[in-house]
Amino acid sequence: MAATAMNVDDSGMAAAAAAAANGQARPRCMSSYVDEGSVQSHRYYLARRTLLEMLRDRGYAIPSSDIDVSLAEFRATHGQSPDIDRLRISNSLRSDPSKRVLVYFCNPGPVKVTSIRYISGQIANKDGLSGLILVLQGEMTNQALKALDLFPFKVQVFQITDLLVNITKHVLKPKHRVLTDQEKQRLLKKYSIQEKQLPRMLKNDAIARYYGLEKGQVVKVTYSGDITGTHVTYRCVW
């Protein structure tokens, strides 16, 4: 049995050597696919990348170089235990630089009223802010949720686990595009309908949350398939 095993190993090594000699890539060892870094840094990396893509898709000025950062580059900058204060994102709309959004990562654990007060105190220029996105790593208490209403701008809350994957990139997800007010009015006029007659999309729908949509906004949904071909429908956020 030992001799047989040795022959198998020898033949495998010979095959690898022959492949290398012919310029072919060697099969990668399974261990090369294992991430030896911390789970914490990997989660922060994935969530931050999704957030950058989300803001770009909302029309914010996000450089491609920020989105294209690799996990290794992220860890080289932030380490295996990133400081959440350094993960904050602040960018302005391309069409209106006066409108700025801030992304704030909360500490692990429950988010209480005291946490919201602390976050409010950390925001230096509230007047120049048009939106705030909080990334949670635990539950938010009812009192803390009510305290969000005290902010003079829109506040969105995401769990970090909801940001590990960009849902808009899923192969089975149809393409969504948010219509401008002018495009919406042309659509309603073209078909002689009111917005309440359009198919609905709930405000808490994952896509509506991704784009930060408000009630009354209309989304163009394009479906593509080998069998059904391409067809378009429209949904109004409700």
Results as ranks from 00 to 15, higher is better:
9 D>L: 15
10 D>I: 13
10 D>P: 00
17 A>R: 04
22 N>P: 00
22 N>Y: 09
23 G>V: 01
23 G>M: 02
25 A>H: 08
27 P>Y: 11
27 P>C: 06
27 P>S: 05
30 M>H: 06
32 S>L: 10
33 Y>H: 05
34 V>F: 03
35 D>P: 00
36 E>W: 11
37 G>Y: 01
39 V>H: 14
40 Q>V: 15
41 S>P: 05
44 Y>M: 15
44 Y>D: 15
46 L>A: 12
49 R>I: 01
53 E>W: 02
54 M>E: 05
54 M>H: 08
55 L>S: 05
57 D>V: 01
59 G>K: 06
59 G>E: 03
61 A>C: 12
70 S>V: 05
71 L>D: 09
71 L>W: 13
72 A>M: 08
72 A>H: 08
74 F>P: 02
75 R>I: 05
81 S>H: 14
81 S>D: 10
85 D>L: 00
85 D>I: 00
91 N>H: 14
96 D>M: 02
97 P>W: 15
98 S>A: 15
99 K>F: 12
99 K>R: 15
99 K>S: 15
103 V>M: 14
104 Y>N: 10
106 C>F: 05
110 P>M: 07
110 P>I: 07
113 V>P: 00
116 I>Q: 08
120 S>D: 10
122 Q>R: 13
122 Q>G: 13
125 N>F: 11
126 K>N: 08
127 D>N: 12
129 L>Y: 02
134 L>D: 07
138 G>D: 10
139 E>Q: 14
139 E>K: 14
142 N>I: 13
143 Q>S: 15
144 A>S: 11
144 A>R: 09
147 A>P: 11
148 L>T: 10
154 K>V: 11
158 F>L: 03
164 L>C: 03
166 N>Q: 01
170 H>W: 01
175 K>F: 08
178 V>I: 15
179 L>A: 09
179 L>F: 07
181 D>M: 06
184 K>Q: 10
184 K>F: 03
187 L>T: 04
189 K>Y: 07
192 S>E: 10
193 I>A: 07
194 Q>E: 12
195 E>I: 10
195 E>D: 11
198 L>A: 09
200 R>M: 10
200 R>Y: 09
207 I>P: 04
208 A>K: 11
220 K>H: 01
222 T>E: 10
226 D>A: 06
227 I>Q: 02
227 I>H: 01
228 T>S: 09
228 T>D: 03
229 G>L: 08
234 Y>I: 05
235 R>T: 00
238 W>H: 09
